[in-house]
Amino acid sequence: MIDVRDVVVEYGKKAAAVRAVDGLSLRVAPGESLALIGPSGCGKSSLLFAMAGLIRPTAGTISVNGESLTRPRREIALILQNAGLLPWKTVWQNANLSLLLGREYPRVTAQAVLDELGLGEVKRRYPSELSEGMKRRVGVARALSTSPSVMLMDEPLASLDTLTKERIQDLFLRLWVRHAFALVLVTHDIEEAAFLGQRVAVLSDRPAQIKEIVENPAMGELNYRDTAAFADTVQRLRAGLER
């Protein structure tokens, strides 16, 4: 359970401070998925980084499973825009970054995760030798390697071609169903939000506030994109963003 209460995130010193997030509250239940959608630069990434324990909110509190969050935690995984892979580490080292950094968890899981994502064959390669889609999957493997209960994604599929994007969205959906983590997805892609979010929070321009929450209960199937409910959610999200 993630509980975000009245969170304010500001950058810079007092007089010249820029407010990125403005008193925002939300809750994500275990195993639930929430998409945050909003215009570029609206502060949604700042909110996500605060939920990852990477930046401390100027005001308000964030707690995960009842404990207040002060720094990055093992049960919270973060997937970054360009997968955040380190070019000087192999696929295996990238996927097992937490292990390299001394956080303990079983190696077996790590190998299983690589196999599950079809990366077992390329684990000795460097990121520069992989296709874009594969790089994203290594990013996913890294996130899954610590068996997190919360998965945060920051525009994870930006700059991918449509087909690769949809294939990885399918993968996200399958993993969410199988591993039952709580998913918080930040995106500016309306269809991605509609495909992966049980609820979609539409954010305002900076500083980010929630304009409305669109319920999207029919999601969860791989063929959801072909349904009328999907089209309807997309419609509502577009209207929400334009409002």
Binding site: F49, A52, G53, L54, P72, R73, R74, I76, A77, L78, L80, Q81, N82, G84, L85, L86, K89, L97, S98, L100, L101, G102, R103, R142
Partner: peptide, 21 residues
């Protein structure tokens, strides 16, 4: 900055950020 964020979110200390990034 994404490389730094990446190791920090995986739990890196300051020294580890230097060593790995």
């Amino acid at each position: 900055p994404e490389h730094v964020t990446s190791v920090l979110s995986a739990g890196a200390s300051r020294f580890q950020t230097y060593w790995h990034v």
